[in-house]
């Protein structure tokens, strides 16, 4: 059954709800969210804390399941999938970038970039070379054998980005990716996102920083679990 004829759609949310039980009270973290992200788009998700941003990111990232509504990611109806299939989908379709980098401390730069290879479920013969190429792509070709603790914050985030790109995912999910970086480094990282997007990578960036949000094409404004506005940044700039 094809619900949407839009073949370019990578992410489709239709009337998506996520409710939590807090004792007798039901908290609606997401209360009927609908939007569609097409291939190659660059989106930012903005909202104050408690707006449902984190929940949206968790559902987007297939780490959490919606209570009701439809979520299609790269053609898969996520609500039908079991834990293993969700893991598989995360491995193939998503690349995570976290606020505090979350590199694995006991592994070297190269090994960190290669971690997603472990979980693909198949062989990736060119994996090692691809990891080296990605390290060079993010400007860390000379630091392959270093441990995360020997790198600066910006460098660690570059490693994390390379790691997220490892399995060539449909979507890059960045959660406050510049939140722990100084403004100069943050600019470099954002420039890297821009260049990845210009190469065709779909990016979803969660942020509370208006300036960061403005780098995207579209900003999804969330409030109390509802979409307040989908702001078309580039159209506005052009207009």
């Amino acid at each position: 059954m094809k619900l949407n004829s839009d073949t370019d759609a990578v992410i489709e949310f239709q009337d998506l709800r996520r409710e939590f039980r807090m004792g007798s009270e039901v908290v609606r973290a997401l209360d009927g969210v609908t939007f569609t992200i097409r291939r190659g788009e660059y989106w930012a998700v903005m909202g104050t804390s408690g707006s449902g941003k984190s929940t949206l990111l968790n559902v987007l990232g297939c780490l959490d399941r919606p209570t009701s509504g439809l979520y299609r990611l790269a053609g898969h109806d996520v609500s039908d999938l079991d834990d293993d299939e969700l893991s598989e989908l995360r491995s193939r379709a998503l690349g995570f970038i976290f606020q505090s980098f979350h590199l694995i401390p006991q592994l070297t730069v190269l090994e960190n970039i290669e971690v997603p290879l472990l979980y693909r479920g198949d062989d990736f013969p060119g994996g090692h070379d691809r990891a080296i190429a990605l390290a060079e792509r993010v400007g860390l070709g000379h630091r392959l054998k270093h441990r995360p603790s020997e790198l600066s914050g910006g460098q660690q985030q570059r490693v994390a980005i390379a790691r997220a790109l490892m399995n060539d995912p449909a979507v890059l999910l960045a959660d406050e990716a510049t939140g722990n970086l100084d403004s100069a480094t943050a600019k470099e990282i954002l420039a890297l996102f821009d260049s990845l997007n210009s190469e065709g990578k779909t990016i979803v960036l969660v942020t509370h920083d208006r300036e960061v949000g403005r780098r995207a094409e579209k900003i999804l404004h969330l409030k109390d679990g509802r979409v307040v506005e989908i702001e078309n940044v580039r159209a506005a700039a052009a207009g």
Partner: peptide
């Protein structure tokens, strides 16, 4: 982190 990167429970 490993789960987010696609690790299954059995991994």
């Amino acid at each position: 982190v490993r789960r987010a990167l696609g690790a299954k429970k059995r991994h």
